[in-house]
């Protein structure tokens, strides 16, 4: 637990020190959302109908850059070897980094939402709390396997291609559930289905936050 907080603190410190990169990342997310609008629009109806899908695809594409970077800072100058010699508790390292990544994804999500509402003319039919919960569960669902996979590919030559290649098929359930839940919040949920999708997201998170925590130690030792 102490390791977790130390790692989280360290990652936040680095993100703050390199905040210009975070700004670039947010710009990337914005650009993707704008491009979706250009590719689909100017049919306002279609944009409004699929606003949730654009938001999550934008977040997914941004997440691969973010996750890759989060592990690159550990290996680019050998900091990971130093952590291993402390010796650091691998579970603490994983959960610290995964939570740091979740927070950054949430930041990207929080920036995307207003833009989605503006450019897609999206409406808010259900309680906005559901949208917040979807964002948290969805970001966490991308971050847990993403952190593990980033560690697996960090020292490989094709890491920028391999990471999305591994991550995308894995997070299909996250995208399906998060897009559905987001769309229901925006377009209305007459049949009370949001709960089911959020349950799916929660189950996914439960499985991968525990599984990846167990496997992470082996991966960083390798």
């Amino acid at each position: 637990m102490k390791t977790l907080l130390n790692v989280l603190h360290k990652d936040m410190l680095i993100e703050w020190a390199a905040r210009s990169r975070t700004v670039a990342l947010l710009s990337f997310a914005y650009t993707i959302l704008l491009l979706f609008a250009f590719a689909i629009g100017p049919d306002a109806g279609a944009l409004r109908l699929h606003a949730g899908a654009y938001m999550w695809l934008g977040l997914l594409l941004t997440s691969t850059l973010l996750l890759e970077r989060s592990m690159r800072i550990e290996v680019e100058a050998g900091a990971l070897s130093k952590l291993l010699l402390i010796p650091i508790d691998p579970a603490g390292l994983f959960y610290g980094k995964a939570i740091a990544n979740t927070l950054q994804l949430l930041l990207v999500g929080a920036f995307s939402v207003p833009l989605i509402f503006v450019i897609c003319d999206a409406t808010l039919t259900e309680n906005i709390g559901w949208l917040g919960l979807t964002l948290i569960l969805g970001s966490a669902g991308l971050a847990a396997p993403g952190t593990l996979y980033a560690a697996m590919t960090a020292r490989l030559s094709g890491s920028q291609l391999l990471l999305p290649l591994m991550l995308f098929p894995l997070v299909v359930p996250v995208i399906v559930a998060a897009v559905k839940a987001t769309s229901l919040v925006m377009l209305g949920d007459p049949m009370d289905q949001i709960g089911a999708w959020l349950t799916l997201l929660a189950c996914f998170n439960l499985i991968y936050w525990s599984l990846c925590g167990i496997l992470f130690g082996r991966v960083i030792e390798a």
Binding site: I73, A77, G78
Partner: peptide, 16 residues
């Protein structure tokens, strides 16, 4: 491990 320090080619720091 606790008692070993290594300064390799990658010196073990955070660049940022």
């Amino acid at each position: 491990r606790k008692d070993i320090g290594l300064m390799g080619h990658d010196i073990g720091i955070y660049e940022d």
